[in-house]
Amino acid sequence: MSATTTAPAGVAKTPKSKNASDRSVAENRLGMKLVAPALVVMLFVTAFPMLQALWLSLSNYALTAPDDRSFVGAQNYVTALSDPLFWRTMLVTVGIMVVTVFFELVIGFVFALVMHRVIFARGIIRTSILIPYGVITVVSGFAWQFAFSSTNGFVNAWVPFIEDNFNWFGEQFPALFAICVSEIWKTTPFMSLLLLAGLAQVSEDMIEAAKVDGATWWQRMWKVILPNMRAAIMVAILFRALDAFRIFDNIFVMTGGAVNTESVSFLTYRQVIEQFQIGMGSALSVLLFLSVLVIAFGIVKLFRVDLAAARQEG
């Protein structure tokens, strides 16, 4: 993959026109024209509504009482940020994010190692690993909700030390556990494919050399393989963490936000779409957006993620 990065640009500049600077002006113009539609579509549905949310978040505005609309300044933000429910949902969301990304990373890495080394049934394994990736999240949520159900599921019967009529959705932690299982099940395969790609880039020569030097399997893993996969792992963590932070589908389907399982996304949805509190809901939207920014920034700084790699700059 890395070998291809320089060639096309060079080829593109093969002399056809006499004047190099004319050519680069034309190229510049063409490039901008070609990316314009994509840029417009992307910004139309994100930047513009986000600015509108910013404006709406400054009023007290409920669709069910349209006549009572009033400008309240930063009041919605003050209310939200001083509300224990907001912080509880934030804690739940971050908890889900940390737990799911950790397990996805560990299990995904094991899967990637297996897929990297396996010789038989390669096609079958790769095909099946795509199935959880392709299954609709809502379907995954239902499948696991019913699996954990005490009346119609199988988990209680299969897992030792769990009573047959244990209700997983009656308390916060068991319910969150079920939600995390669904989330981890669906996204681990994707993670493992990302890591597999990273693993493929680690040169076999280096591993062989380490072997010759007498490094144990464990040492080779920590000293050679993992450091060389760093970029791949970091980008995978960045994407998955932000994806997990936005968790909504599984919660909606599996608990409907009951027993304190609401995430920030779910809370925002409920304010806007169920309560029609457009003002407060917009304030939460803005806070959700800012949280994602903060988390993204934190991960990039903390793990020193190579943003150029994340941006796919060739």
């Binding site: 490039g31 840029l39 549905v45 949310a53 939207s285 803005v286 959700l288 957006f289 941006r311």
Partner: peptide
């Protein structure tokens, strides 16, 4: 192609890939 704004497009794409979808639902 080499053109100005390439980085802007790639950054926008990255930002959108990480965008919290629910925050758009209201607006």
């Amino acid at each position: 192609l080499e053109f100005r704004g390439k980085k802007l497009v790639l950054s926008t794409a990255l930002a959108i890939a990480m965008f919290p979808v629910v925050s758009l639902v209201g607006p």
